[in-house]
Design a protein around this nucleic acid. Sequence first.
DNA 1: GAGGCGAGTAGACACCGTCTACGGCGATCC
DNA 2: GGATCGCCGTAGACGGTGTCTACTCGCCTC
Lengths: 196, 196
Amino acid sequence: MTEDDQDLRTRLVAAGVELVSREGVHALGLREIARRAGVSHGAPRRHFPTHRELLAAIARHGFGRLTDALAGADALAATTGADARTRIDALARAYLGFAAANPGMFELMFRHDLLEDSGTELRRTTLPLFRTLAELVAEVHPQLTDPTAATAALWANLHGLAQLRTWGSLRLATGGEDLEPLLRAALDAHLGPVPR
Amino acid sequence: MTEDDQDLRTRLVAAGVELVSREGVHALGLREIARRAGVSHGAPRRHFPTHRELLAAIARHGFGRLTDALAGADALAATTGADARTRIDALARAYLGFAAANPGMFELMFRHDLLEDSGTELRRTTLPLFRTLAELVAEVHPQLTDPTAATAALWANLHGLAQLRTWGSLRLATGGEDLEPLLRAALDAHLGPVPR
DNA sequence: GAGGCGAGTAGACACCGTCTACGGCGATCC
DNA sequence: GGATCGCCGTAGACGGTGTCTACTCGCCTC
């Protein structure tokens, strides 16, 4: 009922979202998405001029869910009166948790070769989150005149951990597959040991 | 002369290496590589059972060049009597320099969806380098009982920086496109400020 | 009620990776 | 020395892809 009378644009994105989470990025063929949405392979063209733009819309959905997850985690930490260091902890865990829970979507979101306009518009949505992270970093490191570099370095570290985990590289290097000690090491390095 | 009588296997890999550096990963079609090597599209099958295995061989070449670059940079730093901190500096710069100089190859090397056996065998080649990096980290942080986690975290940071740079994400976040302050921030975070 | 237009269909097109039958050529063996 | 065998590259078929182009059908407007 309510799902059948959605317009096709929404149904296509929904089909893609389910497909990528269930089968992975390789399953996101234009014809396969159309099949799952119950239309012919020419139908998507009315709503997305090209395959890449459909994938970009799917990735946009993913960025929305990531933003929600991070904002939710931060709001939860903030309401419990956590300090900046602990809030960054929560954000980092939420980021890596999202990547672990949605590996296909996470891969798609950062596959700029698949996304239209190289995903610039998409990544723009993460800018507010970067700013709040920068504010928290400034709170932890009050002596920094410009916390942008430190924030970007920290963000790159989290992203690198997520990326390396998804293809088992660090299991090869570290032996274990537990991300926790690496995350702790990264956070300690950038922010100092967590106060207890 | 000497290049024509190489066996086709070598010529295919060479054609792929040049193709990926000149045009990018998307240009690495099986038929296109065969075209550049001057053979029909069925010929590669005699040497590589599948397209992915040919791409894996090309990526293997890339890992070899990366290993050479890193080993060369480290050897140079070591012969000038540099301390561990400075040698890590040189390794990090060599890593990011390779990624910047060979963006297409760098992308291919970490596109596990394109590489056979998910690249496990390939990444195994970087293990020795990881170990020397771990030894250097242990030298900088003698108090660590197990420097593996710290090393992996540092390596993830470098990889994240390289990855985020290749698709202009940090230019969006930081404004500038200069990687240097971010690299410095990351190294300082993990290793402490460089002694002068 | 007629006309127009947006949305979905169906087929063609070029290209892709894989598979298979075939041809040629050199090395091997009697 | 000539026949044979095996390897290597060729060429075409096959199913699949993304894109493009008629076409049809139904709703909305005038």
